[in-house]
Write a protein that binds this DNA or RNA. Structure first.
Lengths: 219, 219
DNA sequence: GTTTCATTCGAACGACTGTTTTAATCATAC
DNA sequence: GTATGATTAAAACAGTCGTTCGAATGAAAC
């Protein structure tokens, strides 16, 4: 950490950019290092020089984006919690989702990639790294939702959070299509409207009355 | 179609079974034909003999499951529509989701694989095949939701259906984890409760009041 | 028996994979 | 200038990939 950074100004970032794009489009296994280095206009060996392996490159690609997104999530969440406003789900959902939409307007592929990584592509070793980072976020938001929905049984809250994540993930994954469908509107406007509608939908779902545990199972 | 089927009683199905499991677990590109043939205890060349290529095998794996699931979906949907009951979202959601849970109790990996295929793994050529089959289902259910929610603007209904699919897909993808978490309950019971809660959540989301189009965009 | 045709098998093909090695290149410090 | 250390470049490494080929095997038809 002396000053050895910034020595190779961009080849490292060029690799990260190209890898991010290709991983998101084709997936980890379908993307070869030669595709990445060709897209980045960089020598093949540069990947194993700057990163140690292809899988380490994947983790680097993920870390570069997940860090800021999760920081912003916590920032928005604590800002709301310190505002003294009454407990509600909408601000919590906003804190959870908005950071993804913000980074999405810069680079569309990013959220799509994060969805991929979260529960599909990665090998077991990498998945553990990703999951650990995400589960800390999950715990933090679980507590926030719990405050807003004190009556909801634990099992049901947990599952509903899964539903929320699913709706969010699928929206991120198909954001590109959404932009293509809505012509004559700026990307940012579409994103913000989508976010608004997504919050509205999931908030209503979270607030749905809790089902009684002992409901008869349809025979 | 004379009688050439049933000649090789099971090697074809053994390949399909092994491929289904591995594709769902590791993904298409991370699964080699040698893994499949080893798991199926079948010669390597048998894949290219019975199916023409690896990608054709993927389509065959998909077709074997998607067909019955979609048929059952339409069966449940038309049964509800012909029952003369008042328009509502719950029976439509049930028709959309239940078939996936039913096949899921037989083979856990199936829905997970279908999620993969739908918008991640497949190459462009295969994706077109899968999407075509699914979009017909989408159109059919879109009409049903439209009847139940006549006041909802078109754009908003479309997006909310995306949210529903996302919640469903994520639930399918992490069904294995859910089963692991809930001890002391049969798989079928967990599945049915999850389905019930998922319908309740998405029904509330779909019924949320429509947001006014001209809401101020946060500057 | 022989013929016929579908299926299985072992072996190999060329292409592509991630990684490593060795030498060339560059900027900076002395 | 030379020396140092980080970066880039070209080439090759051992392996795996999907696919193909020709012979062996099987069972049913005649």
């Amino acid at each position: 950490m002396t000053d050895q950074n910034q020595q190779s100004p961009d080849t490292k970032n060029r690799i990260l950019d190209a890898a991010e794009l290709l991983f998101a489009e084709k997936g980890f296994d379908a993307t070869s290092l030669r595709m990445i280095t060709a897209a980045a206009q960089v020598n093949l060996a540069a990947v194993n020089y700057h990163f140690q392996s292809k899988e380490a490159l994947l983790q680097a690609v993920y870390a570069r984006r997940a860090g800021p997104v999760n920081e912003r999530r916590l920032e928005l969440l604590t800002a709301y919690e310190n505002s003294g406003r009454a407990p509600a789900v909408e601000p919590v959902l906003d804190a959870l989702m908005r950071p993804l939409f913000e980074v999405g307007s810069e680079r569309e592929c990013v959220p799509r990639l994060m969805v991929r990584l979260l529960y599909l592509d990665a090998k077991e070793t990498s998945r553990a790294v990703f999951a650990a980072q995400f589960q800390e976020i999950f715990r933090r938001f679980h507590a926030a939702f719990r405050r807003a929905l004190p009556h909801l049984p634990e099992q049901e809250l947990f599952l509903r959070m899964q539903f929320v994540v699913g709706a969010l993930a699928n929206t991120m994954a198909s954001m590109k299509n959404l932009h293509a469908l809505s012509q004559g509107q700026t990307e940012g406007a579409v994103s913000m409207k989508t976010l608004q509608w997504l919050i509205q939908f999931t908030a209503a779902g979270l607030r749905a009355p809790a089902s009684s545990e002992d409901s008869a199972c349809a025979s």
